[in-house]
């Protein structure tokens, strides 16, 4: 991250400084959560909960330059917990899932702008991806992050990012073809 984050976090216990940090990352935090949970209300709840947890444990952050990757770990863990609670169909092998079942997840179509059938189907299909693959799609497509930024946030190499994107998109393609097969 940049010098601003450094300045923000030098006064770790200051609510005013933390406020600046929240204001800076609230939209990204909301979008990430929305990509994981698929609906506005839960996304708002999860993103705010992540900031609360971050505030409580900010003393554990050793390198101030890494605020966002550190915060992202808190947010993703909350989102993963949320997904595990909600998970029912995703645990089943793909060939046992019907296209109707795939369309019935809690990915709200109203979360996407300028809706059309293609966008809605892809959005629902993203809601069926497993957590690691969904994560990489969210960071790349909804946060528009570069491979380098993704690698930094996930504490992995660029090669791993490429590989995860390949398998994530391949899984997405398979889900979409199952959905289309049912029409």
């Amino acid at each position: 991250m940049n010098g601003t984050d450094n300045q923000i976090l030098q006064a770790r216990s200051s609510a005013a400084m933390f406020e600046t940090c929240v204001m800076k990352y609230m939209k990204d935090s909301y979008r990430i959560a929305l990509g994981f949970c698929g609906n506005h209300q839960d996304a708002l709840e999860l993103s705010q909960e992540a900031f609360l947890k971050a505030y409580r444990s900010i003393r554990h952050l050793q390198n101030n330059d890494k605020f966002f990757p550190w915060f992202y770990q808190i947010l993703r863990n909350l989102c993963f917990d949320y997904m595990r609670k909600k998970k029912t169909q995703a645990a089943q092998p793909l060939d046992e899932i019907t296209s109707e079942k795939l369309m019935q997840n809690n990915f709200d179509p109203e979360a996407i702008a300028e809706r059309n059938e293609t966008k809605e189907i892809i959005w629902k299909a993203i809601g069926q991806l497993d957590e690691k693959h969904r994560e990489i799609i969210i960071l790349r497509h909804f946060l528009n992050q570069s491979y380098e930024q993704i690698a930094k946030n996930l504490f992995c190499s660029k090669g791993t990012v490429m590989s995860r994107l390949y398998y994530g998109r391949r899984q997405l393609k398979e889900i979409l073809s199952t959905m289309k097969g049912g029409h």
């Binding site: 406020e19 929240v22 204001m23 609230m26 939209k27 909301y30 979008r31 929305l34 506005h40 708002l44 705010q48 900031f51 609360l52 505030y55 109203e110 979360a111 996407i112 702008a113 300028e114 293609t118 966008k119 892809i122 959005w123 993203i126 799609i137 497509h141 909804f142 997405l172």
Partner: peptide
């Protein structure tokens, strides 16, 4: 197709109240 998906932006008041909620 995936790039074409953009999120509906929440109302401005949501962002205005965001910090207060946290």
């Amino acid at each position: 197709h995936t790039d074409e998906i953009k999120f509906t932006e929440p109302e401005e008041r949501i962002w205005e109240q965001y910090w207060q909620n946290v």
